[in-house]
């Protein structure tokens, strides 16, 4: 259990450092950075490299935004294995839905509850 906390910290931190380098050195906007990271997550899962990272670093790999890309690609691949090419479209949001639904639901609740600050 404890090695998992250590590696979650390290791997999560490293992914954020990659993001920070994109901000500072490549001078990219947050939108660009997040998009590149999401696409990287999907591509790494295509090569079968992201799941071992999740096994090794736990939340260090599931909490950064790269995991969105990974879940989308993973869902699509799993469904395609079962149902052929159509699975690529049907399976995509199977595993990812919690993050996006949560963002929408809590965003709306927050808009109802919180007051905008100046």
């Amino acid at each position: 259990m404890f090695p998992m906390f250590f590696w979650a910290f390290v791997v999560g931190g490293l992914i954020c450092v990659i993001g920070q380098l994109m901000f500072d050195v490549a001078k990219l906007t947050p939108g660009h950075t997040m998009s590149i990271l999401v696409v990287s997550g999907a591509v790494l899962d295509g090569f079968g490299l992201y799941e071992p990272l999740v096994d090794f670093a736990g939340a260090g790999a599931t909490v950064p935004i790269t995991s969105f890309g990974n879940s989308l690609a993973h869902g699509a691949l799993m469904e395609a294995e079962k149902h052929g090419l159509v699975g690529v479209l049907t399976g995509m949001f199977e595993v990812t839905s919690s993050g996006i639904s949560a963002a929408i639901v809590f965003g709306f609740i927050a808009a109802l509850v919180f007051k905008p600050k100046g």
Partner: peptide
Amino acid sequence: AGSAVPVTGFGNSVISAAI
């Protein structure tokens, strides 16, 4: 990037825009 890259950063952008 330490606050923008994790999922919390994604949530923050959606939620702050909504508010």
